[in-house]
Each structure stands twice: as structure tokens, then as C-alpha cells.
Amino acid sequence: MFRLTSALLTTAVLAGCAARGPAGLDLDTSITAVSQASRVRSVVLHYTSVDDASSIHLLSKGKVSAHYLVTDSGRAYRLVDENRAAWHAGASSWYGNIAMNSTSIGIEVVNSGWTEGPDGKPLWHPYNDRQLRALTILLRDIIQRHGIAPENVVGHSDIAPQRKVDPGPLFPWKALADAGIGRWYDETGAAEHLARLQLQGLPDTAWFQQQLQRLGYACPQDGVLDKPTINALAAFQMHYRPALHDGQPDAETAAIMLAML
């Protein structure tokens, strides 16, 4: 009796998997291939530049979108299913991948970005602890489910340094790295490299361009300290040395790059 019932159940399950597909297609979904992986390779972090209400409206009704929005209160909204592409990256590149919308998950965090200070320099707006807690939980879940490598947790400025500066120099990259999220550098090793560089001198522009490319950034490789190179270097500094992100080659930046081997 048990074997008969088990056989009937198995038949019912298989029959349920052999559903009709589009236009009456006989589509069997009972077999799943083992050779597969997530299409998601990166997580891209942004700031919204506007408040909660405006962010929700723009990202749900406008011509841009993101998979998730983290509000000022730390509440998270899922706006686009992870199986679909959100329109958040634009023209961008990371380790040569230019299909960032199709291969990444975009997270927008409510933050005003920057305003002009009395001296004409930007005043950057900080993120709060509620947002950091929400981001840590959200990122850990996404990274685990999709098997995302640490170097592929990036900012919009990392993948589009010629156009974007978000999530800005006050984004808590170091705090996230301390929580095991994203890429960071060996700080002890960086200090050792810095001491050596201060004796030996600074590498040339071509070296910095090569290091930027090695670390994922789209950057010219012509040995010229031009605007695109300065922008790419500033994006790297904003992520890993935010206290000074002027895009100029210096010993501390070189030491950090060497400590990321």
C-alpha cells in the first residue's frame, strides 16, 4: 500500500513539473542542471542626493531604478526583483565588464551627497548608524546568496569614475570591511610599503595606471596624468583613502595599492 501511494505521489509531482509552457509548449521543469551560477557578479552602492520621499518616487516612477533603497531611518525597500535588471549603473566598467546593469545589484542609500561650503569646497553629508546596520544585513545576505567576491562590492564612482562620485568619501567602506564585507587592504603592509616608498621615491604615472587597471578601474594606459586618470585615481582614493581624494599620485596611495596584492 505504501509503495503504491509513493508511486502515485511521484507521478503527481512529475506531472506537475511537466506544465504547459508558452503557446502550449510541453515544458518539463523537473530536472535542474548542476552546472550553473548566479548572473549577479557585483553589488553597486549609490547615494540618492534627495530625501526619503523623493528617493522612493524617483526610483519607482522615474527613468532610473535600483534593486534596493535604504532610507534615512534604516528601512529597506525592494524596488526591483533581483532576477531583473535595474537601471542604476549607466555607462560603466569594472574589471572590463561593461554590462553592469545586467550583472549587478544596485543599492541606493538616502543621502544628500554634498553641498557647497563657504569656501566653495564640497561639504559631504554623513551616513547614520541605522543605515549602516541595514546595509550590513542586506549586503551579507546578497553576497552569500550570489557568491559575490569582496572586490566586487563597489561604489558608483568605482565603476564610473568619469561621471560619478557617489556614494562619496563619507561612505563607511572601512566599517563594512571590518564587518567582513568588501575589499580592503593590509594596513600593516601599507605602512611598510609607505616607509620604503618615502626612501625610494614615487612610481611614475604609468605605474599608477597599471595598478588602477589591475584593481578593476577603467583607466588609460598611456603614462599621461590626464583628466581620466586623475578621475580614476580620485575614485580609488575616495574608497580607500577618503581623507584626501584629489586624484594626484602620492606615496600613500601607492602604498595602499601595493598592500592590495
Score class of each variant (00 low, 15 high):
Glu108Val: 12
Pro126Asp: 12
Arg183Asp: 01
Val165Asp: 12
Phe171Glu: 04
Leu132Val: 14
Val153Tyr: 01
Gly113Phe: 07
Glu151Tyr: 07
Leu135His: 08
Lys174Asp: 13
Asn152Val: 00
Pro150Ser: 07
Tyr127Leu: 04
Arg183Ile: 04
Gln131Lys: 07
Pro169Cys: 09
Lys174His: 13
Gly168Gln: 06
Asn111Ser: 04
Gly117Thr: 05
Ala134Trp: 01
Ile107Ser: 02
Gly113Lys: 01
Leu138Trp: 05
Ala149Asn: 03
Asp141Ser: 15
Gln131Trp: 09
Gly120Asp: 09
Trp114Ala: 13
Gly168Phe: 04
Asp119Gln: 08
Leu135Gln: 08
Arg145Glu: 10
Ile159Lys: 03
Ile148Arg: 03
His125Met: 12
Val153Asn: 02
Ala177Leu: 02
Arg163Glu: 12
Glu116Thr: 15
Ile143Ser: 00
Val110Phe: 05
Gly182Ile: 09
Ile107Tyr: 04
Gly113Cys: 07
Glu151Ser: 10
Ile148Tyr: 03
Val165Tyr: 08
Ser104Leu: 02
Thr136Ile: 05
Ile181Gly: 06
Asp119Val: 04
Ala160Val: 07
Asp141Phe: 01
Tyr127Ile: 06
Gly113Trp: 07
Tyr185Val: 11
Pro122Phe: 06
Asp178Gln: 15
Ala179Ser: 13
His156Lys: 15
Gln131Asn: 10
Leu132Trp: 01
Pro118Arg: 14
Pro126Glu: 09
Trp184Asp: 11
Lys164Val: 11
Pro122Lys: 08
Gln162Trp: 07
Asn111Lys: 03
Arg133Met: 11
Asp119Gly: 03
Ala175Val: 03
Ala134Gln: 13
Val153Ile: 15
Gln144Lys: 15
Val110Trp: 03
Arg163Leu: 11
Arg130Pro: 01
Trp124Leu: 09
Arg183Leu: 15
Pro172Gln: 04
His125Glu: 11
Gly155Glu: 00
Gly147Asp: 03
Phe171Val: 07
Lys121Tyr: 12
Trp184Ser: 13
Arg140Ser: 08
Gly113Val: 05
Arg130Ser: 13
Ser157Cys: 13
Asn111Thr: 02
Gln144Met: 14
Ile181Arg: 00
Ser157Asp: 11
Asn111Met: 02
Ser104Asn: 05
Gly120His: 11
Pro122Thr: 11
Pro150Tyr: 06
Arg183Ala: 14
